[in-house]
Computed example of a mutant assay.
Amino acid sequence: MQCKLHRWAVEDSGRRFDDVFNLVHHPDFLTVAWDRVHGNKGARTAGVDRVSPASIAEGVEVVEFLGQVREQLKSRSFVPLPVRERLIPKSGSSKLRRLGIPTVTAYSRG
Score class of each variant (00 low, 15 high):
45 T>D: 04
67 G>D: 05
83 V>C: 02
34 W>P: 01
105 T>V: 14
76 R>Y: 04
17 F>V: 15
99 L>E: 05
99 L>M: 15
55 S>N: 06
48 V>A: 05
45 T>C: 13
81 L>Y: 00
69 V>G: 02
77 S>N: 10
5 L>A: 08
74 K>V: 12
106 A>C: 14
110 G>W: 06
108 S>M: 07
94 S>A: 12
75 S>G: 07
86 R>Q: 09
77 S>M: 06
65 F>A: 03
70 R>D: 03
19 D>T: 14
85 E>P: 02
34 W>M: 05
66 L>S: 01
97 R>K: 15
11 E>H: 06
108 S>N: 15
66 L>E: 03
27 P>I: 11
100 G>C: 06
81 L>Q: 00
73 L>S: 02
69 V>E: 01
77 S>W: 04
46 A>Q: 06
32 V>W: 14
105 T>S: 13
44 R>Q: 12
104 V>M: 04
97 R>W: 09
94 S>T: 13
100 G>N: 10
78 F>M: 01
63 V>K: 05
107 Y>T: 12
83 V>R: 02
13 S>K: 13
34 W>F: 07
105 T>L: 05
64 E>Y: 09
56 I>M: 02
21 F>T: 15
41 K>M: 07
87 L>I: 07
24 V>A: 14
48 V>E: 02
41 K>H: 09
37 V>A: 05
34 W>E: 02
103 T>R: 00
43 A>Q: 08
58 E>L: 08
102 P>N: 00
85 E>G: 05
99 L>T: 12
46 A>D: 04
85 E>C: 08
7 R>V: 09
79 V>P: 01
9 A>S: 13
45 T>E: 08
99 L>W: 11
8 W>T: 11
31 T>I: 09
47 G>T: 02
101 I>N: 01
37 V>R: 04
91 S>R: 14
54 A>M: 11
74 K>L: 07
19 D>Q: 14
57 A>D: 02
40 N>D: 06
36 R>V: 12
64 E>K: 12
8 W>E: 14
43 A>I: 11
103 T>P: 00
7 R>F: 09
39 G>K: 03
60 V>M: 09
37 V>T: 10
24 V>P: 00
17 F>L: 10
4 K>P: 04
43 A>G: 11
78 F>Y: 07
62 V>L: 06
49 D>R: 00
49 D>G: 00
83 V>E: 00
15 R>L: 11
40 N>M: 06
73 L>D: 01
33 A>I: 09
79 V>Q: 03
27 P>V: 13
95 K>I: 08
12 D>Q: 07
10 V>E: 07
31 T>W: 08
73 L>R: 03
37 V>K: 06
43 A>W: 02
40 N>H: 12
